[in-house]
Simulated scan of single mutants.
Amino acid sequence: MRYLLCLLFCLLAGVAHAAPANKAYMSIIIDDLGQNPERDSRALALPGPVTMAIMPDTPHATDFARQAHKAGKTVILHLPMDPADGPYAWHPGVPVEELARRLDSALLKVPYAVGINNHMGSRMTAQREPMAWLMGELQRRHLFFVDSRTSAATVAAFQAQAQGLAQVSRDVFLDNVRTTEAIGSELQLGVELARKQGSAILIGHPYPQTLEVLERELPRLKRQGVELIGLEQMIAERGNQTMPAHARHHPTAPTGQITGKE
């Protein structure tokens, strides 16, 4: 009897600590920040734990990173990758020593960054050796990685998983079509995905139309049963696992179409 009572207690304790079956979490990243103070400030004012992805080769990168950190927002480095160009951009064939120098310089331009995501990168994120090196370097620096999934051929998240690096992948691009109607539809798609698979990660840009939709709709998420959370919490929720919709992008799977514009 004592054994049965103990077993019942353990089962009840497990239920009490289990995550709710109907959880629906969402994280939102705003890319391409650091270019325009007015747009940046509007992005920074979005309600909730919206992540600020700051490009290193922009005139206001460092100042805005400091502002965002002071405001309590998560800051990540939006690292340019091929076909992006500029002094920080990663390209296939560039020696690893130069890639390391560009990463160092980019991180200096974006203080308080706790992770990185790729800006463009359809060719670069398909390169296994540089991606493996990057994930090892991020592990050493205690930074996480977000695969923007600008290409169906990406191996970035897979290489991060292989090294046990904290990582997540984007589910929805909000503003491939830059109208409030289309952006609203993509946000609703994110809501539906969050309800279906438990979480969704959305990426948008500081376009007026995107900011207008987010300013209006983010306060309404809870009424739709969705909780907006930060990227660090999202990584913990996903437990570094690939979402079902991303499984076809495993490097041994057939290559599909590009999943988002660059």
Rank of each mutant, 00 (worst) to 15 (best):
M1Q: 11
R2T: 11
R2V: 03
L4W: 08
L8F: 13
C10T: 13
G14D: 07
G14W: 12
V15G: 12
A16M: 08
H17S: 09
H17E: 11
A18P: 00
A18E: 04
A18Y: 10
Y25T: 06
I28P: 08
I30W: 02
D31Q: 11
D32N: 00
D32L: 02
L33W: 08
A43C: 08
P47W: 05
T51L: 06
T51C: 12
T51I: 09
M52C: 06
A53R: 05
M55K: 08
P56W: 13
P59G: 06
H60T: 06
H60V: 01
F64Y: 06
H69D: 14
V75I: 09
V75A: 08
I76K: 00
L77E: 07
P83C: 00
P83M: 00
D85E: 15
D85S: 15
P87L: 12
P87T: 14
P87R: 14
Y88M: 03
A89T: 12
V94K: 14
E98H: 15
R101L: 15
R101S: 14
R101C: 11
R101N: 03
D104I: 03
L108P: 05
V110L: 06
P111N: 12
A113Y: 04
A113T: 07
G115C: 03
H119L: 00
M120S: 14
S122R: 12
S122M: 07
R123S: 12
M124F: 15
A126W: 02
Q127C: 05
Q127H: 12
E129M: 02
W133V: 14
E137C: 11
L138G: 07
L138N: 06
R141N: 03
H142Q: 13
F144N: 09
F144D: 10
R149Y: 02
A152K: 05
A153T: 12
A153C: 06
A156Q: 07
A156H: 04
L165N: 02
R170C: 00
R170E: 03
D171N: 15
L174K: 02
R178M: 12
T179Y: 09
T180V: 13
E181P: 06
I183Y: 00
S185F: 14
E186H: 04
V191D: 02
E192V: 11
E192Q: 13
R195T: 05
Q197W: 03
Q197M: 10
I201Y: 06
L202P: 04
I203E: 09
H205E: 13
H205L: 11
P206S: 11
P206K: 07
P208S: 00
L211T: 05
R216C: 05
R220P: 03
V226F: 04
V226P: 05
L228H: 04
I229C: 01
I235L: 15
I235S: 07
E237G: 07
E237L: 14
R238I: 15
G239D: 14
N240H: 04
M243C: 11
M243P: 09
P244A: 01
A245M: 10
H246G: 08
H246E: 02
P251K: 09
P251F: 10
A253C: 13
T255I: 14
Q257F: 08
I258D: 14
T259D: 01
